[in-house]
């Protein structure tokens, strides 16, 4: 039997008439089902195992970890103590949290303003600007980092939070994401609010933002993770230990000649917890938000 897009379309048209008729029982269906479950189980196991490994690793000594010991040990307390004596954890966590929270809030605000602006107020010039932005989207960070570093050192902002946050705030990807999502925002809402005498900025703040909360939730996950996990740019501009983020500190620990993996995995768990928590808190909204954007 030949299968062409044409027969597909035909098939689609006949749906209603034949929906009631069940397909003939397929002897391979059970086998196929089983294979799907097997494939997904393997994928899920491979995906989750490193997390288990990380958690188990915090309870073992470095020597045991290198030897591949996959059972719980009694070194958790020691690892924690080593980590906290070597790392000023409070300070480092504060650096990461401050940078990630401020950068996320600013990114969401500025990029959603732009996404809304591009979609709601169309003009030929702005469409051209938007096209230019999409072109810039493919510019790799490597091409920017040298001039950026020189710019920030000339402005004497090297080793400041400002230097880490500022270049990330206007994200073309997030602007694009918000513009796509705004297509689903009912324009009647804006018209109604206008009749009620709301100004444009009030419409954005009090109508658009609450209505689009799923979109904001999904964007929060993406942007917060990107900022919390950001590595290359902070590595370049943050130069003293008291300003470094947790990712930088944990990474520095691993480059020791004989890394203490028990302690490092303890730090890794700490570094991963915030993003894990955000993910699980916003997970449902995240899926909704993604659906809204791809539509």
């Amino acid at each position: 039997m030949s299968v062409t897009p044409a027969t597909m379309a035909q098939a689609a048209r006949r749906t209603d008439a034949r929906a009631a008729i069940r397909a003939p029982a397929d002897p391979f269906a059970m086998v196929r089902r089983g294979l799907v479950y097997l494939l997904l189980s393997i994928a899920a196991f491979v995906s989750v195992f490193p997390f288990l490994w990380m958690v188990i690793g915090t309870t073992n000594s470095s020597a045991d970890i290198i030897r591949g010991k996959a059972s719980l040990g009694g070194e958790f307390f020691n690892n924690a103590v080593t980590f906290f004596t070597q790392v000023d954890a409070l300070r480092v966590f504060w650096n990461s949290a401050f940078i990630a929270v401020v950068a996320t809030a600013l990114t969401l605000l500025i990029s959603s303003l732009a996404g809304y602006g591009f979609e709601m107020f169309r003009s030929r010039v702005r469409e051209r600007v938007f096209a230019l932005l999409l072109l810039l989207l493919s510019i790799p960070f490597a091409a920017l980092m040298v001039p950026l570093f020189v710019m920030f050192s000339q402005a004497r902002l090297v080793n400041t939070y400002t230097a880490v946050i500022l270049p990330t705030v206007a994200s073309i990807f997030i602007i694009f994401y918000f513009r796509q999502a705004t297509k689903a925002f009912p324009t009647e809402l804006r018209d109604a609010a206008k009749i009620d005498g709301l100004k444009e900025w009030q419409i954005f703040l009090f109508v658009y933002m609450p209505v689009m909360r799923s979109t904001y939730a999904a964007a929060t996950i993406i942007v917060f993770m990107a900022n919390w996990n950001n590595y290359l740019w902070p590595l370049i501009v943050l130069q003293t230990a008291e300003n470094k983020t947790i990712t930088l500190i944990v990474s520095a620990l691993t480059s020791a000649y004989t890394p203490d993996y028990g302690m490092i995995l303890f730090g890794t768990v700490l570094a991963t917890l915030p993003t894990l928590i955000i993910f699980f808190l916003l997970q449902r909204r995240f899926v909704e938000g993604m659906l809204g954007a791809v539509k």
């Binding site: 490193p50 997390f51 990380m54 990474s251 890794t268 991963t272």
Partner: peptide, 13 residues
Amino acid sequence: VTSLIAYSTIFKS
């Protein structure tokens, strides 16, 4: 959800 650093460390070990 993991940072690039976290998973590099995990994979390295």
